[in-house]
């Protein structure tokens, strides 16, 4: 049985798609058959981050409408074995995603995948609701910034009430926090919320911290999931995070600032 994971946040621009791409690539690299689904109908972008934008023929909505079957719409990643992408449609029809349609596509994907990663759109409208509705696990992506933390709390409320697990009285959706764009030096100066503060406010368990890094923009420019850039800090942070998600304990490596020689002398 496949596990359905929603990557969500409420607020836009915090790193949902970057995290979805990294998580999917990381799980596939670990040997799991993984598909990552773009739920952002109208604003397709996962294909660009995954570097397969020129290979999109059919999309999520085509499959729902019976204009293509799943095998025609799924794009096989050329770098990682066992990784597939289901792109979003660019239709302007807000109602293109139907409850029954999403359910049947997820059931179809569950037959031959271990993990289904649902890349949620921003906001709390239909697309975001459907992305989280069938989830077993939720990755909540948050920036250390007041509006992002508040929106994440709102999304946690929805995960606890507006999901299949909540409605059927099953075990609740397992929530994991990912803090992105973290700058330990600014936390040290008291200018940025710390990871501890964010965990305390949201009362949710931390999965990983991704440092503010040039590697994220570079990877998206090139259409490579940043986790595949082994030598970068953000790539390593995502690698740790995926390992932890799979149950392997790994220390948090990116909570402290890297101190230069001068920094060491003055800070002791």
């Amino acid at each position: 049985m496949a596990r359905i994971v929603v990557v969500t946040s409420g607020k836009g621009g915090v790193g949902k798609t970057t995290t979805s791409a990294a998580l999917a690539a990381g799980l596939a690299k670990a040997g799991y058959k993984t598909v990552v689904v773009d739920f952002d109908v109208g604003l397709r972008n996962l294909d660009l981050i995954m570097g397969c934008e020129r290979r999109v023929v059919y999309d999520f909505v085509n499959v729902i409408n019976g204009e293509a079957n799943l095998n025609q719409a799924l794009i096989r990643d050329k770098r990682v074995e066992g990784l597939e992408i289901l792109p979003a449609s660019q239709t302007r029809d807000k109602d293109a995603l139907t409850f029954e349609g999403v359910q049947s596509v997820l059931e179809g994907l569950a037959e031959n995948h271990d993990y289904i990663i649902c890349d949620s759109p921003a906001g709390i409208e239909r697309g975001a609701h459907l992305a989280m509705y069938f989830a077993d696990d939720a990755i909540v992506v948050t920036n250390p910034e007041v509006s992002s933390v508040r929106d994440s709390d709102r999304v946690l409320g929805l995960l606890a009430s507006k999901t299949r697990r909540a409605e059927q009285g099953d075990a609740p959706v397992a929530e994991h926090l990912v803090v992105t764009r973290y700058a330990p030096s600014r936390v040290g100066k008291g200018e940025m919320l710390s990871v501890e503060d964010i965990c305390e406010i949201l009362s949710i368990e931390l999965l990983g911290v991704v440092p503010e890094s040039n590697a994220v923009l570079n990877a998206s420019n090139a259409g490579v999931p940043v986790i595949l850039e082994d030598g970068t800090d953000a790539g390593q942070a995502y690698d740790d995070l995926v390992a932890r998600y799979l149950g392997e304990p790994r220390p948090q490596r990116f909570l402290d600032e890297k101190k230069g020689l001068l920094g060491r002398i003055f800070k002791g």
């Binding site: 007041v146 709390d153 409320g157 008291g190 503060d197 406010i201």
Partner: peptide, 22 residues
Amino acid sequence: KRTASMAKDRLQVIVARERSHR
């Protein structure tokens, strides 16, 4: 002034209020 602690205080208040409504 250390703005991070202001952020934390404000968030704790608003989040608690929104949760009680929710």
